[in-house]
Simulated scan of single mutants.
Amino acid sequence: MWIQLWEHLWERHRGKTLGAAAGVLLGLIYLICGLWDMLIFVLIVYTCYNIGKRIERGDTPVPIQQFWRWLLDKWRLLR
């Protein structure tokens, strides 16, 4: 049963699975070191999951240009 679940995840959701696994690994390292709390752990897992999801869809992993435009639009509102 578990093997079939992992095969399904690997075949259909490879990017999300790798992203979430990387997030869990990084989060566990952070928790073991004793510096992180649970919210940081969840933030890391969520961020890695979203990056994996973007890669799986064929988008850029981190949309820097889109983020920069958003920041500039917000800055114009403050002027």
Rank of each mutant, 00 (worst) to 15 (best):
G52L: 02
V24K: 00
P63F: 00
R57V: 00
P63S: 01
E56G: 03
Y46A: 10
H13F: 13
W6H: 05
P63E: 02
K74E: 09
I3E: 07
R12M: 02
G34C: 02
N50H: 05
G19W: 04
Q4W: 10
K16I: 14
G52W: 03
Q4E: 14
Y30L: 14
C33I: 13
E11A: 11
T47N: 02
L26K: 15
L72D: 06
D73M: 13
T60K: 11
H8D: 07
R54Q: 01
L25K: 01
V24C: 08
K53S: 08
I64S: 08
M38L: 15
T17A: 15
W75R: 09
L43R: 09
L31W: 12
G58H: 00
R54C: 00
M38W: 15
C33G: 15
W10F: 05
L72F: 11
L28A: 12
Q65N: 01
L35D: 14
W36D: 14
L18E: 06
P63Y: 02
L9E: 03
E56C: 00
F41Y: 12
W68T: 11
A20D: 03
K53F: 06
H13N: 12
V62A: 02
L78A: 10
K53W: 03
F67T: 13
W68N: 09
L25G: 07
F41C: 06
W36E: 14
I44E: 04
